[in-house]
């Protein structure tokens, strides 16, 4: 069955509209966080998608190293690119939340710091790609770098376990957030909507990379014929 881009985008829009409605209007204020919980409904899904897209990037990089198929390099690069965008959204929305909750946008909390390190590691990935001219070498070197850069993902995820942190956690008890009923529904809908939109963006980014490759091959071919 053919993938229907328009239907998929329609479903994504409906899920996200519902998610926004639940988060802004149906969900009650949380006991500890109060109205700030609504920021959290939009911040957490973006953080989850950041980790998810970097896992996709890592798996594709490993598959590229095993098979040398260029499609895996294309997937890996597209996923890392989206990781940068979602990383910025996560960092900025986290800073807005931090300012409202702690009175300061940035206070070098372990979760903030390790997520910034993660983001910078993937900025390095793109600088590396730009610095290698030979396409085959670029793909191999960046795939190896990607595997190393991924080490920052578990570091960011587990940071509040390794170091004392003010960052809220979802687990029950121990200072964790106690979400229930409509709050869980709002969070689940926002996570689902976030992932659906990510899948749509990933298909677009991958499509652009494939056409770019095709164009570069055509230019090289034309130059070879002309020369």
């Amino acid at each position: 069955m053919e993938f229907r881009d328009d239907i998929f985008l329609g479903i994504t829009a409906v899920v996200n509209a519902l998610a926004v409605y639940f988060a802004l209007f149906l969900s009650p204020a949380e006991v500890e966080m109060g109205e700030l919980v609504r920021v959290f409904y939009f911040h957490l899904p973006q953080a989850i998608v950041t980790y998810l897209t970097l896992v996709v990037s890592l798996v594709s990089a490993i598959l590229f190293l095993r098979t040398k198929a260029t499609k895996y390099d294309a997937i890996s690069e597209s996923a890392a690119f989206l990781g940068l965008i979602y990383g910025v959204i996560t960092l900025v929305s986290g800073a807005i939340w931090a300012n409202a909750a702690w009175g300061v946008y940035w206070n070098w909390d372990p979760r903030e710091t390790t997520t910034l390190v993660l983001w910078l590691a993937y900025v390095g990935y793109f600088f590396l790609r730009m610095s290698v001219e030979n396409p085959e070498r670029r793909s191999s070197v960046s795939a190896v770098y990607n595997v190393l850069a991924f080490l920052t993902v578990p570091l960011s995820y587990l940071s509040f376990i390794i170091w004392p942190s003010l960052h809220p956690r979802l687990a029950e008890g121990g200072g964790g957030l106690g979400l229930s009923g409509t709050m869980v529904q709002a969070l689940v809908l926002n996570i689902l909507g976030g992932i659906l939109f990510y899948v749509w963006l990933m298909r677009k980014a991958y499509g652009v990379r494939l056409i770019k490759d095709e164009l570069e091959t055509k230019i090289a071919e034309d130059a070879r014929i002309a020369g």
Binding site: V39, V88, I89, S93, K204, E214
Partner: peptide, 30 residues
Amino acid sequence: MVLGLVWVTLAGLSLWLIRVRSNLESKLKG
């Protein structure tokens, strides 16, 4: 504010990707 940040960024990215794709396609045909 956060909702606006998320959606403006993602919508901007979508439009940018669509535009880049259409530019590349026209270059490929031309």
